[in-house]
């Protein structure tokens, strides 16, 4: 086997192979309920298959859109890639630092100042102190909320909050970026800025997986689209066709 051909070819960043995800919806939330259910031979849980036999590979530097209707399993798939959830079958492999922007601002604490939150969240996303120090000014500048950076986050408007959270997330040093529905942050000028920033990351060769219902943005940012319908992959190909498949199944 000639390994050099593999190395020079773009290597995959994300490998998803025959992945299954079943959710157990438990009906019991205490020892007593679980015990009684067992005695009465009632079902403790019902299962729901959220993803069925999903297989694909994403190469380094590719930007891929995951499309599908509500409840089709897109967020579940991103959480599996991010390591938040574990698959029940199949396997997932990733290469490099993964930043999952499943929801920005998940780690924000309302009682801390903007500055403290930037540090906390950047650390949560995997940065160390030196890296954050180096990027702090960029993060704040990008969010355009310099004047408020030292006031408590609970006094922010929701747009300001999202700006800061997104700004932290986008400045994390990463190889793979998972974006779930967060392109709709802030007002129109800020959205445009975010879109450009993500474009920039794509051009730098970062691997990107984007979940969005905004087909226009998706076509602008991604080259490839994967359509998921009720947990099954129904299409994988150029993004324009993927959007068509989604609209006219």
């Amino acid at each position: 086997m000639d390994t050099t051909t593999i190395v020079t070819k773009t290597r995959p960043s994300i490998i998803v192979e025959n992945v299954q995800k079943t959710f157990l919806l438990r009906h019991t939330h205490s020892f007593k309920e679980a015990f009684i259910a067992r005695i009465k031979k009632k079902k403790i849980s019902t299962s729901f298959q959220a993803l069925q036999d999903i297989t694909f590979t994403i190469d380094q530097g590719e930007s891929v859109a995951i499309l599908g209707y509500n409840g089709s399993g897109k967020s579940t798939l991103l959480k599996l890639i991010a390591g938040v959830l574990e698959p029940d079958g199949g396997k997932i492999l990733t290469r490099g630092r993964v930043a999952g922007l499943i929801e920005v601002g998940a780690g924000f604490h309302p009682d801390l100042s903007g500055r403290e939150n930037v540090y906390l969240n950047a650390a949560i996303l995997g940065m160390n102190k030196a890296e954050i120090d180096a990027r702090f000014d960029d993060i704040v500048a990008f969010s355009e909320i310099e004047e408020f950076i030292d006031s408590e986050v609970k006094h922010y408007s929701s747009g300001m909050f999202l700006r800061l959270a997104f700004s932290v997330a986008i400045h994390v040093d990463l190889d793979i970026l998972l974006v779930d529905e967060i392109l709709a942050v802030g007002d129109a000028p800020f959205r445009e800025k975010c879109r450009l920033k993500i474009r920039e990351l794509v051009e730098q060769g970062k691997t990107m997986v984007v979940v969005s219902h905004d087909t226009k943005t998706v076509q602008d940012l991604c080259d490839r689209g994967i359509v998921i319908k009720k947990g099954v992959k129904v299409f994988d190909g150029p993004v324009a066709e993927a959007v068509e498949v989604l609209k006219h199944p």
């Binding site: 490998i15 599996l80 991010a82 390591g83 938040v84 396997k91 492999l93 993964v98």
Partner: peptide, 19 residues
């Protein structure tokens, strides 16, 4: 795309969520 005939060098890969 990954096919069975396409050998992939798996060094540097890791399983997400396993620490």
């Amino acid at each position: 795309m990954l096919t069975k005939t396409d050998p992939v060098d798996l060094t540097g890969f890791s399983v997400p969520g396993r620490g």
